[in-house]
Amino acid sequence: MIQEIFSEILDASQQLSLEDQETLIQILKNRLLEQKRAELVKDVREAEQEFAEGKCQAFTPEQIMEEILS
């Protein structure tokens, strides 16, 4: 089902002028960036909440490297 929709979108985009295709690409890129930003903000807020609740602790870079290398 999704593959069919994707194929239809690709076919429909071929009907657009080159300028409109470029505009569509830019719109899609901007939307992806916004989604990635929103996901990052969500992840940071969750991490801050976990830290505030004492579910995790702070480490120095040296401690992190020591853990990675052990």
Score class of each variant (00 low, 15 high):
residue 50 E to A: 09
residue 7 S to K: 15
residue 37 R to I: 01
residue 27 I to H: 06
residue 45 R to V: 01
residue 18 L to V: 03
residue 49 Q to L: 08
residue 45 R to K: 15
residue 21 Q to L: 04
residue 55 K to I: 01
residue 67 E to F: 06
residue 32 L to I: 08
residue 30 N to L: 00
residue 57 Q to E: 13
residue 14 Q to R: 11
residue 54 G to Y: 05
residue 3 Q to A: 06
residue 19 E to R: 09
residue 53 E to C: 05
residue 26 Q to A: 02
residue 51 F to H: 11
residue 52 A to P: 01
residue 20 D to P: 00
residue 6 F to K: 11
residue 42 K to N: 14
residue 44 V to E: 10
residue 1 M to S: 14
residue 50 E to W: 12
residue 69 L to Q: 15
residue 47 A to T: 13
residue 17 S to N: 10
residue 70 S to Q: 15
residue 60 T to G: 04
residue 25 I to Y: 09
residue 16 L to H: 05
residue 47 A to Q: 11
residue 14 Q to K: 12
residue 19 E to D: 09
residue 63 Q to S: 13
residue 30 N to I: 00
residue 49 Q to F: 07
residue 70 S to P: 01
residue 44 V to M: 10
residue 8 E to I: 02
residue 42 K to E: 14
residue 63 Q to R: 13
residue 54 G to Q: 15
residue 25 I to H: 07
residue 9 I to L: 13
residue 41 V to F: 00
residue 62 E to A: 11
residue 40 L to Y: 09
residue 27 I to L: 11
residue 42 K to I: 00
residue 9 I to C: 07
residue 15 Q to S: 14
residue 57 Q to C: 05
residue 18 L to M: 13
residue 38 A to I: 06
residue 60 T to N: 07
residue 19 E to C: 02
residue 32 L to C: 04
residue 12 A to R: 15
residue 38 A to G: 08
residue 28 L to A: 08
residue 2 I to L: 15
residue 23 T to G: 02
residue 42 K to R: 15
residue 56 C to R: 14
residue 33 L to A: 08
residue 21 Q to H: 06
residue 3 Q to M: 03
residue 11 D to E: 15
residue 24 L to M: 07
residue 61 P to K: 13
residue 1 M to Q: 12
residue 24 L to T: 01
residue 30 N to H: 03
residue 61 P to M: 06
residue 14 Q to A: 08
residue 8 E to T: 05
residue 36 K to H: 07
residue 20 D to W: 01
residue 18 L to H: 12
residue 21 Q to N: 06
residue 70 S to I: 07
residue 62 E to M: 08
residue 30 N to V: 00
residue 10 L to C: 06
residue 30 N to R: 05
residue 23 T to V: 09
residue 60 T to P: 00
residue 45 R to S: 01
residue 12 A to E: 15
residue 68 I to K: 14
residue 61 P to C: 02
residue 21 Q to D: 07
residue 22 E to H: 13
residue 6 F to T: 09
residue 17 S to I: 04
residue 9 I to V: 14
residue 38 A to E: 15
residue 47 A to V: 03
residue 68 I to A: 13
residue 22 E to N: 14
residue 69 L to G: 03
residue 8 E to L: 10
residue 2 I to F: 12
residue 47 A to G: 04
residue 37 R to Y: 04
residue 37 R to N: 07
